[in-house]
Design a protein around this nucleic acid. Structure first.
Lengths: 336, 336
DNA sequence: AACGTTGTGTACATCGTTGTAAAGACCCCG
DNA sequence: CGGGGTCTTTACAACGATGTACACAACGTT
């Protein structure tokens, strides 16, 4: 065990409170006393016990970030941003994996880590408005991603409909006529997938292209392998697509893998576009066109809302934050 | 604020200690009393305050994992393993980024988070034996990666020399004669890079190939861009290589990107092999041959050592754990 | 009837820190 | 010299939970 404030006080021959005052930079401590205490502090290598401090005060300086899977590049990159920006707020980030499982998400948001963290940022996959409404834990919460209608919570997202629309419009402009989509989630309503598909359909309509349900393929986990499989399904159709909009970059990369394996050229024969702009998209072969949400902005907005709620408490009105996105055109949709 | 044990006690009409007994499953509580307390517990949605609990007892159930950059896939995958396996030990993992900066690593290992975590797993880049020796903080520590000679600390690693040797021997067996290496660290001695390069030179010697210092290119951060740049440097040589051993997968993928950009075919003209076996290696074009450390085993060993040290305390002798690796041959080194 | 045993509940101190209140020392001014 | 202020330091309580020690009842045993 390290030295406690009491040990320091004894060694310096002063009261515990005086040591506390020195440690916390209280103004009125005689220079001589301060020196004595500082010496004892150094000699004993004193470090305040966080537990005690926060038991007294309340704040832990810790916030939790819950994401489905930290190994997915999008979440890893987002987490990096959050960790980085949180440092400016004086917070340490505790990262949690939910695996996108409802129970885990509910556990986190209902305060499994209660009293441990000052605030909570959750990127939900399965969580529904109802789950948030019945929440009893008072820990400030910010949701990332889709707005859960009727849920009285702060949340940050990008305009997924517009993002998807931009991506698909871009494909249409290349002259592609059979544009597929990979990543629908038939059993989930109102989530990210639904919004991006809405954008997909809007873009088709604007381009006067027919909507063919056969060209929309579901995916479970949004991993590379899901994209690879879905692409295979599409290629086995009687009338395969000439372009694919993947609902995230990871699946796009999996899809490209399948295309290469079958000897098809990207983008000449099939153009591919993703969503997320993970770093890998800038280095793959071909480099991947994608919709790039501003991850730094997402992190900043989320932490800002969290800070506000930690400071102001429950009373404040739930707020929404919208981060920007931009269409990034790379080789996978650029015909030489 | 949530309800405290005192609130529960009042509501149930018993003493605080009795509530504590119920919460902690103490044996001798009359069923009737237990029921009363349980009811109050439920009604108030009581959750124990961790801070208070650990102030008293000691354990927090938290461990910290410090890695250079969470967004690097290798560390993200490793972190996922650690988080997952830690759950079995009843631990929550707090993830820290050091950016590979010495001061940050030292801060973490010297207990910035003191009293907050029960243990610490650090994957150091810059940390040196001296830093660990002069450590005053008593929090149990396990180091990942290279053994710091003379440092009295538990650590877990793989045999980097043997891994690199296997990779380079594989390239030699393909008949390649000018095998380059990307990722040396001229200003760091004794780290991972040095060991892998040692394996590189051993393999060259075994294959009776000359060692050409021009073929060894340094890299700062082991990112994709470092690999891409280094590859460009190699291609600009008068006598460019016919194979490249990259000290990690990320640089290998960057290198492949440069090769494609210059119109060179992999593996026909230049074979590429990496190190780490990140998931991306299975889906890139071409798929990437690599040395695959058993990340699950690394996590298991590290957590095992940590548990031992938390239980047994300082006294135990420092132990080493070695995880297995295997050579994974994929398209980037397979000539049809 | 006296005694131990077992089961059940409580009072109190304690962990390390900090806010509150107050005491003491000092100085200035009228 | 008294009243007021400014510094400087301290004692004490409190945060929430739990270990220790003990009180008390109900029971069986001698």
């Amino acid at each position: 065990m390290g030295a406690s404030i009491k040990d320091v006080a004894e060694r310096a021959g002063v009261s515990v409170k005086t040591v506390s005052n020195v440690v916390n930079g209280y103004q009125f401590v005689a220079p001589q006393t301060r020196a004595k205490v500082q010496k004892a502090l150094d000699e004993l290598d004193y470090r305040p016990n966080l537990s005690a401090r926060l038991l007294r005060g309340g704040r832990t300086g810790l916030i939790a970030l819950a994401v489905p899977e930290i190994r997915m590049p999008y979440f890893a990159e987002l987490a990096a941003q959050v960790v980085h920006i949180a440092k400016d707020h004086g917070w340490t980030v505790l990262i949690d994996e939910t695996q996108g499982i409802l129970d885990n998400e509910r556990l986190v948001s209902e305060g499994l880590k209660s009293h441990l963290v000052d605030g909570l940022i959750v990127s939900p996959l399965a969580l529904r408005a109802r789950d948030v409404q019945t929440r009893r834990d008072r820990t400030p919460l910010v949701l990332l991603g889709e707005r859960l209608v009727h849920a009285p919570v702060d949340h940050v997202s990008i305009d997924n409909v517009a993002g998807a629309q931009a991506a698909v419009a871009h494909l249409a402009q290349l002259g592609r006529r059979r544009i597929a989509a990979i990543g629908s989630q038939p059993h989930v309503s109102g989530g990210t997938a639904a919004l991006r598909l809405k954008g997909y359909r809007q873009a088709l309509r604007s381009a006067r292209l027919p909507y063919d349900p056969m060209l929309v393929v579901p995916a479970a986990h949004y991993h590379r392998s899901d994209g690879a499989q879905a692409m295979a399904t599409l290629l086995d159709l009687d009338d395969p697509p000439d372009a694919v909009f993947c609902l995230n970059d990871l699946m796009a990369l999996g899809a490209i893998r399948t295309l290469h394996a079958r000897g098809l050229r990207v983008p000449e024969q099939i153009a591919v576009i993703g969503f997320d702009d993970i770093e890998e998209a800038r280095f793959s072969t071909p480099t991947l066109s994608t919709v790039a949400p501003d991850k730094g902005q997402i992190a900043r907005l989320a932490l800002g809302l969290l800070e506000r709620r930690i400071t102001d408490g429950d009373s404040a009105q739930p707020q929404e934050g919208y981060a920007d996105f931009r269409l990034v055109v790379r080789e996978s949709t650029t015909v030489a």
